[in-house]
Simulated assay, not measured.
Amino acid sequence: MLSALILLLNFGGAAALKICSFNIKSFGGSKISKPDVRDIIVESISRCDLMLIMKIKDAKGKAFDQLMTHLNNRSRTRANEFSSVISERLGRKSYKEQYAFIFRQKMLSVKSVYQYPDTQTEDEDAFAREPFVVWFSSPKTEIKDFVIIPIHTAPEAAVKEIDELYDVYQNVSQLWQSDNFVIMGDFNAACGYVPKRQWVNIRLRSETEFVWLTGDKLDTTVKTSTKCAYDRVVLRGEKMIEAVNPESVEVFKFKDNLASLSRRLWP
């Protein structure tokens, strides 16, 4: 199951910041060329200050730029409201995907980016799509900077990849001087992909300094036949954890909220 939902969280201060995660099913030229589909995606992104986009599968490299153009052209009074940063194409063999972050420029800026190399001794190539890590500056919020580690796991390797995110955190925390971390994305962390008996083998779960905002019973799927908490948000850092209200996490059911637009995206 591929998630096509948005996970929202807010942390306060001088201004609240809405951070979201969206796995767009096989985003590329076909979707961006359909006005009704494009409108759903643009409307969903515009609801957030910072959006992680997953499963960009555009080999030609044009669809994401077109998405940004449509997003920034939607309002004449707020030209170039959003900026972005995108990874290289990631994956084994011929199958490739990209991560991207889209953010409001008046709220955020990028301090640094880091493509996790996934070359650990005796554990090389642990990820199908290595995390593209971004360090953000957020001067208007209580938390002035934070790091996001994104992930879209391979479903059949979800247990291993979620566990390996602990190593990614350790690596990045040594590289950058930030205490505030958000690990988020499509973990495939439920149902048949992560059986209950396997949670004890996942360090990101067993180490108590990590706080999971998304519970195991949260439904982040779009099909009515499934109810699985595939998408997750995990926090690390005392100030970050204190700044976030756990009840602010939501699943945006765009098929319900934007029903008139959504039929051709996920029929």
Rank of each mutant, 00 (worst) to 15 (best):
103 F>L: 09
103 F>R: 09
105 Q>G: 12
106 K>E: 12
108 L>G: 04
108 L>W: 04
109 S>T: 12
109 S>W: 10
109 S>I: 07
110 V>S: 05
112 S>Q: 13
112 S>D: 11
113 V>G: 02
116 Y>W: 09
117 P>A: 12
118 D>I: 09
121 T>P: 03
121 T>M: 13
121 T>W: 14
121 T>H: 14
122 E>C: 07
122 E>F: 14
123 D>R: 15
123 D>N: 15
124 E>T: 15
124 E>R: 15
125 D>V: 06
125 D>R: 14
126 A>T: 13
127 F>A: 02
128 A>K: 14
128 A>W: 10
129 R>M: 05
130 E>D: 06
132 F>E: 04
133 V>F: 02
133 V>N: 01
133 V>I: 07
135 W>F: 11
137 S>V: 11
139 P>K: 12
141 T>D: 00
142 E>G: 05
142 E>P: 01
143 I>C: 01
145 D>H: 05
145 D>Y: 00
145 D>G: 03
146 F>A: 05
147 V>F: 05
147 V>M: 06
148 I>P: 02
148 I>N: 00
149 I>R: 00
149 I>C: 02
150 P>S: 08
150 P>H: 08
150 P>K: 11
150 P>G: 10
151 I>V: 15
151 I>H: 07
152 H>W: 05
153 T>H: 08
155 P>W: 11
155 P>T: 06
155 P>E: 06
155 P>F: 05
155 P>H: 08
156 E>Y: 14
156 E>T: 15
157 A>R: 15
157 A>Y: 12
158 A>F: 04
159 V>K: 14
160 K>Y: 12
160 K>G: 04
162 I>R: 08
165 L>E: 00
165 L>A: 05
167 D>M: 14
168 V>C: 08
171 N>G: 06
172 V>G: 01
172 V>K: 07
173 S>P: 03
174 Q>N: 13
175 L>M: 08
176 W>H: 04
178 S>T: 09
178 S>G: 00
179 D>P: 03
179 D>S: 13
180 N>W: 10
180 N>M: 11
181 F>T: 05
182 V>K: 02
182 V>N: 00
183 I>F: 02
183 I>A: 01
184 M>T: 00
186 D>S: 07
187 F>W: 13
187 F>T: 04
187 F>I: 06
189 A>W: 03
189 A>R: 07
189 A>K: 08
189 A>I: 10
191 C>K: 13
191 C>D: 11
192 G>A: 10
193 Y>E: 10
193 Y>M: 11
195 P>S: 13
196 K>A: 15
196 K>I: 06
196 K>V: 07
199 W>A: 09
199 W>T: 12
201 N>H: 12
201 N>F: 08
202 I>G: 00
202 I>W: 05
202 I>T: 09
205 R>W: 12
205 R>M: 08
205 R>K: 15
205 R>F: 13
206 S>R: 14
206 S>L: 10
207 E>L: 11
208 T>P: 06
209 E>V: 08
209 E>W: 01
210 F>K: 06
212 W>F: 01
213 L>P: 02
213 L>Y: 06
214 T>N: 03
215 G>W: 00
216 D>G: 01
216 D>H: 07
219 D>H: 03
219 D>C: 03
220 T>V: 07
